[in-house]
Amino acid sequence: MSHTSARRRSGIVAAFALFAAMLGHAPAAMAEESQFGYVYTTDLLPQGAKEVEQWATWRHQKVAGYFDQLDGRTEFEYGLTDRLQVAFYANYTWARAYHNGPFAETTPPEPLSYDKPGPDDHYNATRFVGFSGEAIYRLWSPYNDPLGVAVYIEPTVGPAFRELEAKLILQKNFLDDRLVTAFNFTYAPEWRYDTVEGDPTRKAWGYETDVNLNIAASYRFAPNWSAGFEFLNEHEYNSYNFSKESNDGYFFGPVIHYGGKNFFVTATLLEQLPWASSHSDTVPGAIVGGRIYDNDFEKYRVRIKAGWYF
Rank of each mutant, 00 (worst) to 15 (best):
L84Y: 02
L139S: 09
E190D: 09
G48V: 08
S246N: 10
A20W: 03
S278I: 03
T268D: 09
Y193L: 05
K299C: 02
Y114Q: 11
A160G: 09
W140R: 05
F242D: 10
D43Q: 11
K203N: 10
D82I: 04
Y89C: 00
Y66E: 09
Y240C: 08
L23A: 03
G307N: 05
Y250D: 03
A17R: 10
D68V: 12
G37E: 05
L80A: 12
K172R: 13
N184I: 04
R7N: 12
Y123K: 05
F264R: 12
A87R: 03
G158A: 07
A160V: 11
T282F: 07
T201P: 02
W308Q: 07
Y89P: 00
A15I: 04
F16H: 12
H122L: 08
A276M: 07
L179N: 02
E105T: 13
P223T: 07
G118Q: 12
V255F: 03
R138K: 14
A17S: 15
D145F: 04
T107R: 09
S226W: 01
D145A: 10
F264Y: 15
M22D: 07
Q35E: 13
G290H: 01
G198N: 07
N224I: 00
A21H: 02
G65V: 05
K167L: 06
V255R: 01
T209F: 01
N184V: 06
E197F: 08
L112W: 08
Y240V: 06
F88P: 02
G290Q: 02
I153E: 11
Y38F: 15
L213E: 11
F229P: 00
S277Y: 09
E33D: 14
K261P: 05
S132C: 05
D248F: 08
F88Y: 14
V211A: 09
A125S: 15
G290K: 00
Q171M: 04
P108E: 02
I169A: 01
E271M: 12
L44T: 01
